[in-house]
Each structure stands twice: as structure tokens, then as C-alpha cells.
Nucleic acid binder design. Structure first.
Lengths: 155, 155
DNA sequence: TCAATAAAAATTGTGCACAATTTAATTTCG
DNA sequence: CGAAATTAAATTGTGCACAATTTTTATTGA
């Protein structure tokens, strides 16, 4: 049996490539985010809050979950850590006491300034053309869409 | 500031696409692997052992780590679980007592038969052409190579 | 020789992910 | 109205990842 024919061969698995590449990218982020004292998932949460807060929207935990594809089991403890650090406040809304909304503090907004240089720094020293990365991003979005069965072109 | 220009926009981040796609793929695997009572990382370990055991090689924990880019902090407890389930044996070698080698049991080899249908089943119901997936795999390998600074075309 | 160094795996501790369940609030509908 | 169903978040428990340290064994070199 030829290795390149074998569906169980590690090297032939897109999924392993995805798994390994994801961890390699996250590892590349780690020292940059350490300067902000954030983990990668925490950084993603902050990205959403910076983006939605900018237009004056109040982000709910469920909104975050929809954007990041994470549930409350992951988000609740993560958000508590960010709250303890003083980056955001969590508050139930009076119209519906089940809902928790998230509001950035001044410290949370201040951190955005520091974070602006992260994407630039990340690409620095990586020998990959931006166009190629954008093509990859679109391919990955297509995979995500196909797997989720969603119309995912705008969110 | 235009959203599509914003480097801090979630939608523009290749890295988030990678993160989300990876989790979506793993989620797609989960029910298939549940039939084998394996997690995805456990499945990857078994793939390596099936592949290397086939040629009669004794796989070391360090070999696994190199292939999967995982350290002993991750592998040791995972391998202990697989050993407890009777899928493999861990044994230190006499030439160098620091080294732990892994040998599949009969049950470990038997599981390979069940696993053969997994790649097929995974693609079933996913509206993605195989050629496109292979192109994606190669792109991801290029990213991995660029990030690790390795010659990664053969392993 | 034997102390210093290096190497392999294990251990410890933190923080995700995610399934499953629980709690509390809201909505639906008979 | 008021019980049943639904929803949002929190909780509980398991299994990765990974940094940092420790333990054990092997190798090096003065």
C-alpha cells in the first residue's frame, strides 16, 4: 500500500494540516499577546468588543458566542478573568435578566492602542505574501461555511 | 475607518479563520471518532502508530512529539489513557532508560480496521471538492513551514 | 573518574473547548 | 392566569495544549 494513497496517512490529512497550522499560528501570537497579558482566545474576545463597542453596540455573551463559535462554558470563565483584570464589566440587563452584556472599561479601550501593532508584528518575519494569506483566509471561510451549513459571507 | 481596512477586524484575520475552521473540522470528526471512543488528538496518535508500526518501527514518545508537534506534557497523560484502554503498551528501552517506546496491542491494531472508514465518512456530506481540499492542505503546509522555519515537505 | 551538562519523559499548574446539566428568567399557549 | 416549553448564562467534569519545573538517565570533558 502506497503511503500517498493511504487515507489514514497523517500527511494526507487536511485536518491535521489545519490542526498543526492553527497551533503554529497561535504560538506565533503568544509572545506578542503576552505583552498585552492576553491569551489568543481572550484577544479574539477583545477584537469583537473593540469592533462592536466602536459602533456603540452593547455586546451580549450570546453575541460573542455567535461570532467566535464558543459557548458559555468557554466564555463565562474567560470573561470573568477579563473582568477581574478590569478590562470589561459584565452586567445583566433589566429588560431580560437572563442576558449578560459586556462593556469595555477605559483600560479595555486603552489596550486597543497597544493591540494595533499586533497584526503588523505577526506578519513581520513570516515569509508569506499577504495575497496568499488572503486567499487562504477565503478558502478557510469556504470550509467553515460548508461545515456549518451557513451563509457565512458577511459575519 | 473602514471595516475592511481594519487590521484588528475579526473578519480580516487569517488566524481566526484558521482557528474557527480547525474547530469546525474537529467537531465534524467528533461523532465519527466517538464510535471508536477516541478524541481527535488520540486519533492522530493512533494514525502515527498505525503508520510507523506497519513498517515494524518502534515509535518513541519523542517521535510522536516531532510528528504531531506536541510535547510530553500533552502526550504523557494522553498515552496513559490509551494504555489504560488496552490500545498500546508503554515501555522504557534497556539501551536508554530515559526513552519510552510505544507498541500497539492487538486491540490497537483491531481499531485500525474500524478507523478505515473515517476519512470517507468525514467527507461524505461536505460540499467540498477533493482537489480543493488538497490545495488547501498544501497551502497550510506552506504556512506551517514558514512559521516553523523547517524543510517540511517530506514529514 | 566524576562533576557538569544534556536529554527524555513526567509532573504541576493555568486556560481553553465542549458535553451535559443546572439555574433562573421569559415566553407560549391551553 | 398558570403550567409547560424555551432561552441565556452558569456550573460541572473531562481532555487537551503548553509553560515551567522536576526526575531520572546518559553523555561530556576537565
Amino acid at each position: 500500500m502506497n503511503k500517498s494513497d493511504d487515507a489514514l496517512s497523517l500527511d494526507n490529512q487536511v485536518c491535521f494540516a489545519l490542526y498543526a497550522a492553527n497551533r503554529a499560528v497561535t504560538a506565533r501570537y503568544r509572545p506578542l499577546l503576552a505583552d498585552l497579558d492576553l491569551t489568543y482566545p481572550q484577544y479574539l474576545v477583545m477584537l469583537v468588543l473593540w469592533e462592536e463597542g466602536r459602533v456603540g453596540a452593547l455586546t451580549r455573551v450570546s453575541d460573542l458566542g455567535r461570532r467566535l463559535r464558543l459557548d458559555s462554558g468557554t466564555l463565562t470563565p474567560l470573561l470573568k478573568r477579563l473582568e477581574e483584570r478590569g478590562l470589561l464589566n459584565r452586567q445583566r440587563i433589566s429588560q431580560d435578566e437572563r442576558v449578560v452584556t459586556l462593556a469595555l472599561t477605559d483600560a479595555g479601550w486603552a489596550l486597543q492602542k497597544q493591540a494595533r501593532s499586533v497584526p503588523q508584528k505577526l506578519l513581520c518575519g513570516v515569509a508569506l505574501q499577504p495575497e496568499r494569506l488572503q486567499a487562504l483566509r477565503q478558502e478557510l471561510r469556504a470550509v467553515l461555511t460548508a461545515l456549518e451549513g451557513e451563509a457565512g459571507s458577511s459575519d
